[in-house]
């Protein structure tokens, strides 16, 4: 019987600070065979072990296309993430996964693709943004709306600049609280929805951010006429096993780890624990 709790060993290839409390770690599995077998889709996550500190789930924040490494973008917020932030290049960690389901891709071909991200909610959206952009001919348009609390909280600053400049993509930024030196939009991310033209009946929205942001953006999108199937989000919960055994991530009759983490708004509404 194979052991789904047994991590594969990976080494940290690169450490890139994103903000004052978030960092992107680029990992590579040590074993070349395991490395080759590690195929994932945007939206999936891994259970990361920092041995001695513990294990926690993190979304994979990079596209798997054309590379044998993957990124985990992590906020320093607890025991495992504190210990991870103490590690440098060459440090060894454990990885289980890829786990969970993934964002629809082929299913949304031909549509206008809208991404709405709040804070570190951009982490799980990034691989999907990268994949959709790479194959932009297959989609009608690509729009990224991203907001953070302050300018200091914006993640992937270099990439955001690229997204704002490159052809075939619209990318707007906002911060909740303006400050000296910030000349962009001020206001919650939902306010950006008024600034873009969206062909709602032919669009699909991918939303991720803090719970309150998701709630308001979903309300805004529903008000604009987005159908329940056309709003896709990815949820996070406290998890231990990642394979539907420990039950920590349960919402109603679903495990976020195994049935999700990607859910449509329709699926979320059907969860008995879901609060509008």
């Amino acid at each position: 019987m194979s052991n789904p709790y047994l991590p594969k060993i990976a080494s940290i290839q690169k450490v890139k600070p994103e903000t004052y409390d978030t960092t992107t770690f680029t990992l590579q599995l040590d074993d070349p065979t395991e490395r080759k077998a590690f195929q994932y889709r945007p939206g999936q996550f891994v259970e990361l072990s920092v041995f001695g500190a513990g294990e926690a789930p993190f979304c994979i924040s990079s596209s798997g296309h054309g590379r044998d490494t993957f990124d985990l973008s992590v906020r320093k917020v607890g025991r495992v993430t504190d210990a991870l932030h103490e590690m440098g290049e060459g440090g060894q960690v454990g990885v289980r996964g890829p786990l969970g389901n993934s964002f629809p891709f082929e299913e949304v071909e031909g549509k206008h693709i809208l991404f709405v991200g709040g804070g570190i909610g951009l982490f799980p959206l990034r691989p999907q943004i990268q994949d959709v952009y790479r194959e932009r001919d297959r989609f009608a348009s690509i729009t990224v709306l991203y907001g953070a609390r302050t300018a200091e909280d914006l993640v992937y600053r270099d990439e955001l600049e690229e997204w704002q400049q490159q052809e075939g993509m619209t990318c707007l930024l906002t911060v909740d609280v303006g400050a000296e030196g910030w000349t962009g939009n001020v206001g919650v991310v939902g306010t950006l929805l008024q600034k873009v033209e969206i062909d709602v009946p032919n669009a699909v929205a991918f939303v991720c951010g803090p719970p309150i942001m998701i709630r308001f953006v979903v309300q805004d999108l529903s008000g604009m006429g987005f159908g329940e199937e056309a709003i896709v989000t990815t949820l996070e919960r406290h998890m231990r096993c990642g394979i539907g055994k420990c039950n920590h991530c349960m919402i109603g009759d679903k495990w976020v780890c195994k049935d999700g983490p990607v859910f449509t708004y329709r699926q979320m509404k059907a969860m008995t624990e879901f609060e509008e």
């Binding site: 072990s49 500190a53 231990r240 420990c246 039950n247 920590h248």
Partner: peptide, 19 residues
């Protein structure tokens, strides 16, 4: 009732993961 939690325990460079 079968929920479990998982924790690591270390003694020097040796450790165990327990549920």
């Amino acid at each position: 009732c079968s929920c479990f939690t998982v924790t690591d325990r270390m003694n020097g460079s040796e450790g165990v993961r327990e549920r």
